[in-house]
Design a protein around this nucleic acid. Structure first.
Lengths: 165, 165
DNA sequence: TATTGTTATACTCTATAACTATA
DNA sequence: TATAGTTATAGAGTATAACAATA
């Protein structure tokens, strides 16, 4: 594929930025998967962030609560590995979730270094609210992607995550 | 589509986090476009970030340089609108790029509030290096997506960015 | 009055390294 | 020695609000 770049002629200095509808040239970015993947993800994430803020939660809490719910008793180190962050990043998040009584953190008896993380009933309630947000969000995405392409699209996303990592 | 969630049985406390290969249950996240879009984008962006760090640049500089190259004479306000950030976020970036003589910033004569941004020859050189990184990165993504699906995949990404925004 | 760009400031997310307590 | 989790700290990236210069 030829991707040679030509620079454009300078725009009229007086016109630059003076109109709202100023057409912007994105150059080869337009045709690149990496750039469009980023634009799509940014837009989608902002949509979910808005929905979760409406119920007083942050989007980042969602994955943490879900991973604890589906893997009850998980340790902090295993949890941080599961969502690809350093364990130190998890400390303030869990401090907040424990303070709000959404997560309970109990020492194990055999190895007194580790904690067992589980959701409290309140945590399960909040997770259900977040799941409801995610489902509304997912319905929007499904409508945009369309039923014909959904499975193929999802497989391609999974391949990218697996093979780029 | 039924998306009811059942919580799993608590895992053995002693086993939690004790093995490297501990299988993690991601629950309904596995099947959601939003989550997989995020995972794919994170992995892809990390790959490009690595390539750009190899040539001593940050991935975030790429879009800025490209937008200036393809829209010479653009103002800071128009540029910040083009990549969806507040104009104040651009000030430290341009301070850096101007200090390194990659971007030149000249006052317009008619409206002495605005600057005309253009790339210097050094800026064009750095952009070409970043484009080379991006092309290598794009080749990897193309290989993962495959030529049969590429066009469809790109169209779907563009629809998500356009309709979620 | 409105707009361009800067400054001051703060908030989020993330990482590294040093620490503690346990093993 | 090695591991689980915490603390201190720092660095990106971003935003809001107030501001100076200019229109």
């Amino acid at each position: 594929m030829s991707r040679a770049m030509r620079l454009e002629r300078p725009r009229d200095a007086d016109a630059a930025g003076s109109e709202q509808g100023e057409p912007i040239n994105f150059g080869p970015l337009e045709h690149w998967i990496g750039f469009n993947l980023r634009m799509a993800q940014t837009a989608a994430f902002a949509g979910f962030a808005k929905l979760s803020h409406e119920i007083g939660e942050r989007p980042g809490r969602f994955a943490t609560l879900m991973l604890i719910a589906k893997n009850p008793g998980i340790s902090q180190t295993a949890l941080s590995r599961a969502n690809g962050r350093d364990k130190s990043s998890l400390t303030p998040v869990l401090t907040d979730l424990v303070r709000r009584r959404l997560v309970s953190r109990t020492r194990t008896r055999n190895d007194r270094r580790t904690y067992r993380l589980t959701l409290t009933p309140a945590g399960e309630r909040v997770l259900r609210e977040l799941v409801a947000c995610a489902e509304r969000h997912e319905d929007r995405l499904d409508a945009i992607v369309g039923p014909r392409e959904r499975a193929q699209f999802l497989r391609t996303l999974k391949r990218i995550a697996a093979e780029m990592g």
